[in-house]
Design a protein around this nucleic acid. Structure first.
Length: 480
RNA sequence: GGCGGCUUGGCCAAGUGGUAAGGCGACGGCCUGCAAAGCCGUUAUUCUCCAGUUCGAAUCUGGAAGCCGCCUCCA
């Protein structure tokens, strides 16, 4: 099987061939750190986290960079409102970003550069572009000369002539062409600024990615990703800058994820439905969030709503319930989990990979995950003293597959007992009272007083507690 | 105005020209004192509509309708 990736540049799926055998250089546009992250950021970051995990799983030597835009109009505005420095705003939200993404079990990228740490690189590229006649300074600003780059529009499929007709853009007489964009912005009073050959100022938005990508990963990289909205103008402009500066292709595979809608509406500040990761995590387990995000194809829009989240949360519950069941039957879940990294995988993991290899179709992959879940439960259901050995072998293979899939999806990090205990704690029920009621019910059942037993169960139900009678006694959990 | 995308069962959602994955829900069964959980089975002759190409189309082509995104900061 070969990995195929939909390349925005070509508009089709292409077989993935790294530029250097066995190595992958990947860059993903990170956040502008002026506010908390929302579920849309989570989608992008979680998706590319899966790309990273999968490529590493293939044994490739992946260098993954994800930047922070830590100097920008929005940050400066925010700082002005709060009466603090832009740096303070950026630092606060970088910390928040890390906290959010750690909570979502996102692996840290190899490199997390900040724009302000690469001002020299930025200035060097701008100088180069000016020297080559691709950019021009005006009153301390520097603009990229869009008409100097023949391929302008190749990523977004736009032509300069077409855009000019209906475009709503600022008319700025100082620009040669309305689509020329700022590489450098002259300092305004009170703004943070750096010294450069054109006077004090700060970088424009697009140039930082060209600078950091080329400095950290090379002039041509394998994968560059981000949200669909970045295709134009951000990534289009990055291509123009980088390819003009280095006379080499900038990126081999462009990948863009789709948006998250909220209850079938576009998420936007004006609608007031911006859904922050922190708030989502108050209501749902982080792995439910990941499973929700990954059970849809990354390029399609997805709808965040209560039903979808409850479904995902329910499925995470089922997976942990299986893990608990296996731990109860066989013990040593930790050892079984370790085996996932050494043992050969079974058919279902191969099926899972077949999905993921097809343009990271994790939605297709989850079908294999649920099949493994069902097969493992069935094997335990059907286990007898005669077939115990065969069953154990079968369950082992299924469990290894499940852990391997979970390792790529980034779920099932917890011990199942602590997972369910944490749920009980979050629900805030009186556990001693539940234990007492269950004991009372057990006594009633012993005396065949089923009416009393059912009364007690009703009482538990009213508390939101669901009970399950098993071979080794009664267990309970919180109902959804 | 320009560019792009989407329309698959009650809901969500895969589907790469060869005869509709998976999840949720619903219904029936096994299990259970009864339940729950788990398992088994049933739940789209059909993929918005119309025409065409083909031995064969949800998948390709043309047309129609509806929905959505981008073109402005945005994941």
């Amino acid at each position: 099987m070969a990995l195929r990736i939909y390349n925005t540049l070509s508009g089709q799926k292409e077989e993935f061939q790294p530029i250097e055998e066995g190595e992958v250089k990947m860059y993903v546009c990170g956040p502008t750190v002026y506010d908390s992250c929302h579920i849309g950021h989570a989608r992008s970051v979680v998706f590319f986290d899966v790309v990273y995990r999968y490529l590493k799983g293939l044994g490739l030597d992946v260098t993954y960079a994800r930047n922070f835009t830590d100097i920008d109009d929005k940050i400066i505005n925010r700082a002005g409102k709060l009466g603090v420095t832009a740096k303070a705003v950026a630092e606060k939200y970088i910390d928040e970003f890390h906290a959010d993404m750690d909570a979502l079990h996102v692996k840290r990228p190899d490199l997390a550069p900040k724009a302000t740490e690469h001002i020299d690189d930025i200035i060097a590229i701008i100088q180069r572009l000016i020297d080559k006649g691709k950019a021009y300074p005006v009153d301390g600003d520097v603009y990229f000369r869009v008409t100097s780059f023949e391929g302008y529009g190749k990523l977004s499929g736009r032509k300069l002539e077409d855009m000019e007709a209906g475009a709503r853009i600022d008319v700025d007489d100082r620009k040669e062409n309305p689509f020329d964009f700022a590489l450098w912005k002259a300092q305004k009073p009170g703004e943070p600024a750096w010294e450069c050959p054109w006077g004090m100022g700060r970088p424009g938005w697009h140039i930082e990615c060209s600078a950091m990508s080329s400095r950290l990963l090379g002039e041509t990289i394998d994968i560059h990703g981000g949200g669909k909205d970045l295709i134009f103008p951000h990534h289009e402009n990055e291509i123009a800058q980088s390819e003009s500066a280095f006379d080499a292709p900038f990126v081999k595979y462009w990948m863009h994820n789709g948006f998250v809608n909220i209850n079938a509406e576009k998420m936007s500040k004006s609608l007031g439905n911006t859904t922050m990761i922190q708030d989502v995590l108050k209501n749902y387990h982080s792995e439910a969030v990941r499973l929700f995000l990954l059970s849809h194809h990354y390029r399609s829009p997805i709808d965040y709503n209560e039903q979808a989240m409850k479904e995902a949360a329910g499925n995470i519950d089922k997976l942990y319930a299986l893990l608990r069941r296996i731990a109860e039957e066989f013990g040593n879940l930790g050892i079984l989990r370790l085996q996932a990294f050494n043992n050969k995988s079974g058919e279902l993991f191969k099926e899972f990979c077949a999905g993921v290899e097809d343009d990271f179709n994790t939605a297709r992959g989850t079908a294999a995950l649920f099949e493994a879940l069902r097969a493992a439960n069935r094997a335990i259901d059907e286990m007898t003293s005669e077939n115990a050995f065969e069953s154990k072998v079968e369950i082992d293979i299924l469990l290894v597959d499940i852990f391997k899939m979970a390792g790529i999806l980034g779920i099932l990090h917890e011990n199942p007992y602590s997972y369910f205990d944490a749920k009980k704690e979050r629900a805030g029920v009186d556990e001693d009272r539940v234990a007492a009621l269950i004991q009372g019910r057990a006594d009633a059942r012993k005396e065949k007083n089923f009416q009393r037993a059912d009364e007690i169960r009703d009482e538990l139900t009213a508390m939101g507690v669901a009970i399950e009678d098993g071979a080794s006694g009664t267990t309970w959990k919180m109902m959804e």
